[in-house]
Design a protein around this nucleic acid. Structure first.
Lengths: 152, 152
DNA sequence: TATTGTTATACTCTATAACTATA
DNA sequence: TATAGTTATAGAGTATAACAATA
């Protein structure tokens, strides 16, 4: 007997539910650190890739340059990053993590690792592999699915 | 050889990436209908469960009553719902879908079904079952993981 | 006295357009 | 002339606190 449409919708709900739970947890965890999701995107980028211009950050975050100005303003005010002059272009500023920003970046990386560990550690290798290849299958199919949506 | 921490982090990234892609698509789709994610939550609830008081909506959406006032204001202005008097309690208003609201609710339900179909249809039953039971395993474990986070 | 929804106020994220300084 | 970032303005979502009407 083929699986029903209902089963597939329930599976989609599971994906969305899982994502919502993780998202909520992430939001609350960041709040405890005095950060928001939007701001932490900036901190994470300059932590992982080193100092970046606001233009580069806007590009990487798919957000307007004006928005980056606001996010960086807030992060400077709360001590997570600083604006440093660009060595070769006086129009640009290099957003650079402070000690506090670097600490947060390290904590985020560690938290991410711990979270993944806690989430997956108890699963058998067989099941883990099944999940990963399942997710890969979904991610491969998704662009096609979304393109169909657009053309609808 | 046991799987590495890196593998597990990559798996977590896949979950988050999948969720982000679906979320983006949903946001753009709603925008095309003149709705936002926050507002559609209201429309979806009154479509699925029938007219509800704002208090009930605030509760169901985990959002402040004040916020519901704003969302309903916007939905009334754009013609998706109306405020009707509550038959037994003159303090309350029943948020009720208009014809347009009901149409959107039907479309959302249909879109959700189509999306699930497109996403999962090509997968073998065996792989589909593996994904579902994998997701179940993650969802079962997640509250425990999150509780650990809180106590950290 | 308790509850429902609103007004008042404020903060965050987001965008576009116009402007300044620099390239 | 083009680019980097800011000021100006606006809209959406969110919250708390004070208040009115009703229960």
């Amino acid at each position: 007997m083929p699986r029903s449409s209902i089963d597939q919708q329930a599976a989609l709900d599971r994906v969305l539910h899982l994502a919502a739970l993780i998202d909520d947890d992430m939001t609350h965890g960041l709040e405890a650190m005095g950060l928001t999701k939007a701001r932490v995107g900036v901190v994470w980028l300059v932590h992982q890739q080193g100092p970046r211009t606001q233009r580069e950050l806007a590009e990487a975050l798919s957000v307007s340059p004006r928005n980056v100005t606001g996010l960086v303003d807030a992060l400077v005010a709360t001590g997570f990053v600083t604006r440093a002059p660009h060595p070769h272009d006086r129009r640009s500023t290099l957003v650079t993590p402070t000690v506090r920003g670097r600490t947060v970046g390290d904590d985020l990386a560690a938290g991410r690792a711990q979270f993944a560990e806690a989430l997956f550690a108890d699963l058998s290798d067989r099941r883990f592999d099944a999940i990963v290849s399942g997710l890969d299958a979904l991610l491969e199919r998704l662009p096609v699915v979304l393109a169909q949506e657009v053309s609808r």
